[in-house]
Design a protein around this nucleic acid. Sequence first.
DNA 1: CGATGATCGATTGTTGACAATCGACGATTC
DNA 2: GAATCGTCGATTGTCAACAATCGATCATCG
Lengths: 225, 225
Amino acid sequence: MVKLSIVERRSSVDAVVDQLRQGVIHGHMQPGERITEMELSAALGIGRSTVRTALLELEKDELVVRKPYSAWAVADISPIKIWEIYTLRGALEELAIKLATESLTEEGRAKLAEAFDLLDKVQRKGLTEQRTDADLNFHRTIVQLSNHKKLIKTYESLLLQVEWVYRWSERQRPTSIHLSDWHRPIYDGILSGDPAAAVAANLNNYAVTLELDKQQATVAEETGL
Amino acid sequence: MVKLSIVERRSSVDAVVDQLRQGVIHGHMQPGERITEMELSAALGIGRSTVRTALLELEKDELVVRKPYSAWAVADISPIKIWEIYTLRGALEELAIKLATESLTEEGRAKLAEAFDLLDKVQRKGLTEQRTDADLNFHRTIVQLSNHKKLIKTYESLLLQVEWVYRWSERQRPTSIHLSDWHRPIYDGILSGDPAAAVAANLNNYAVTLELDKQQATVAEETGL
DNA sequence: CGATGATCGATTGTTGACAATCGACGATTC
DNA sequence: GAATCGTCGATTGTCAACAATCGATCATCG
């Protein structure tokens, strides 16, 4: 018998959720920008309740915020929020790395290698967007290897915010980190059965990133913006 | 001027969410039990959309599951799920302990001491329910001390599931752990500025708990249930 | 008798109408 | 002129009707 996959039936709200999510993440809507249900309803040719349900969904991922009886708005970005996202991310990935290392299969090695190779490929020739994709994909792959459903679910939700601020930062000031060099210690740590090393490298990466952001912010402030 | 607190305006949805949450967590509804929107709507004398929105909210915390076009049901409990909840909880609390230790204030020490004292109080004379309350309260307090909004939010959501399986386990077989002894190493670690010790003690506690659960399950199976 | 297909009741998915609430603006008062 | 209050438009909150979908049941056919 042929191997079949379930036809995915997407409800209207799912479609709207996807569309809005992409809009926020890719910066087609500005942080803090106001959203009204009616407007979206009219623009998308879809019922207001449906739009509403979709917005409630996005609210869970903290991509939009709700002000009862007043309005919706795209969430805004602040240094504190970025710090929170990165530290939380680090904690989740720490657990993922430990679990992934413990139960790494041949198939898992292959997937991880593929994700790492992609980093190298886009490093040599790849646009900003593709570099971001590959980077996020590498981390996502590690978490998937943990085989921990709840962890994966929590992480995927957080990763939406990560992607959001990541793309936002890249638009402001593209980073020049060498993707595969940057991630190699993590990759090596997992493959060699040394989760502690991988975790340390990962957390250090984030600490460095946050430090760079901080300096950037200071410079920006001093120069008058 | 008198110190005022904002009048909390609870929407109908919030009220329903609370009620359903309590129902699930305190075991008034069995795991796997089917829920229909209409039934709740009629029982609570409230519109179906409102019920629906509330259920979507509970779905986020994974207390209920949705089967599109079919029905809602109270989530079910499995050993794997319990393991996932405890490991994820450990990872989040690990971050919380580190942050709380770093930035512990005098006020924080007081809150922590209060939470710890409560453990001792209910240890000496307290019903199962109160013991559970005090236990969860101690962990919650630590996370609050982290001052990490996203972490707190994520943890609170998970803690609902923790509370749910905790009360569920307690109803099946009340534990006899000595609450303050059990948590003292964590408490001491944080107060003495030794997060690593606190984290280790905490993770060890969960490992022991899971191991006990496992043995219990094995025994139960061997004896025919 | 087993497998396939049609029918139907039950339940969720979607929608537009109506109610409740908020915030801004202007009128009023001192 | 400044502070307060009332009014009103805009927006979300709630609801009940209608549409889409699913799963069980039963008829049909080989």
